[in-house]
């Protein structure tokens, strides 16, 4: 039975990674789960300079999910390289570093720094980031912005670059095409869905930032729909994510068109969630006599 996949020349031992921002760089969860068993580890977004992130409360629970605005708190690329690269070297898995930025140049700058660093296999651009230069919109809310930032980052790095897209758009297919045109080796779909909660006693939004992103099982059908539409539109592989709790969820994503999947909020409910997803996929393949996991990709089309 073949579980391994290959994305842009990078070998994953199975089609499962972590969704950015849910396990930081892996260390905090390492007493609970061995990330070397995953196909890849995707890190929390890192920016050119340290970002403090949002005020608190940063999260609000909702049926089957959570609305969050962490505000991309991270120590900046200098400390990231010092603090985390030695840890990555101890892991036997593909390392995907996710980058966030408020302007194009900063995506390029961080990519350049990571190109010089060792022990990193792929980059992922968090194109759900908002930018003042773009009137407060997100990079991946416009085809031109999406293509442009990817093309610029591609110029400074030989690492394969994944474009992580936001579902908060009118037509995900056209953004997916723009990312492909910009040189993305793969798409990560989806980032969280724009959302909010209100405290009816105080009559105020629960989150300090009022609005945030919805993650967890509540968004799975939306994420599946995005993957399904993007699969029809592009030829590059898709990493599907959004509410994956079990292998069954992951297989739905594969069938919608994903080549791999990311496990996010599920870690907070079960730190071993990603490992159990791998075990479940294996069991499904065994039961249905499937030899190669890529046979499942796009099966629902």
């Amino acid at each position: 039975m073949k579980l391994n996949i290959n994305i842009a020349g990078i070998e994953w031992k199975n089609p499962v990674t972590t969704a950015s921002g849910t396990v930081n760089s892996g260390k905090e969860y390492s007493p609970y789960v061995d990330f070397s068993k995953l196909g890849a580890l995707t890190t929390k977004s890192v920016s050119a300079k340290p970002w403090k992130g949002s005020q608190t409360p940063r999260i609000a629970e909702t049926y089957g999910g959570m609305v969050h605005s962490i505000g991309l708190q991270n120590p900046g690329i200098d400390e990231f390289i010092q603090r985390d690269i030695p840890y990555f070297k101890k892991l036997d898995t593909a390392i995907i570093v996710n980058i966030c930025a408020r302007e194009e140049n900063d995506f390029v700058e961080v990519a350049r720094r990571l190109e010089e660093a060792s022990g990193i296999h792929m980059l992922e651009l968090n194109l759900a980031c908002k930018s003042d230069d773009l009137g407060g919109f997100r990079f991946a809310q416009n085809t031109k912005w999406t293509e442009s930032v990817l093309a610029k980052v591609k110029k400074v790095t030989n690492l394969p670059v994944i474009a992580k897209l936001t579902p908060n758009v009118t037509d995900i297919a056209e953004i997916a095409k723009a990312a492909e045109a910009g040189g993305a080796c793969a798409l990560s779909l989806i980032n969280s869905v724009s959302a909010m909660r209100i405290n009816i006693e105080t009559r105020k939004p629960i989150l300090a930032s009022a609005m945030g992103g919805l993650s967890g099982p509540a968004i799975k059908p939306i994420a599946l729909r995005c993957v399904y539409q993007a699969y029809k539109a592009v030829n590059i592989p898709i990493i599907g994510m959004g509410g994956i709790m079990t292998g069954e969820d992951a297989i739905e994503f594969l069938m919608a068109g994903a080549t791999a999947v990311g496990v996010g909020m599920a870690h907070f409910i079960n730190p071993r969630a990603a490992l159990e997803v791998i075990e479940d996929i294996e069991a499904y393949m065994e039961k249905h006599g499937i030899d190669d996991v890529v046979e499942l990709t796009g099966a629902a089309h």
């Binding site: 849910t22 999260i59 969050h68 962490i70 907070f268």
Partner: peptide, 16 residues
């Protein structure tokens, strides 16, 4: 006290 999600230091929800 602060609102928490992961409880292990990974998600950065619970900062002070």
């Amino acid at each position: 006290e602060e609102y928490m999600a992961c409880s292990v230091g990974a998600c950065l929800a619970c900062v002070v």
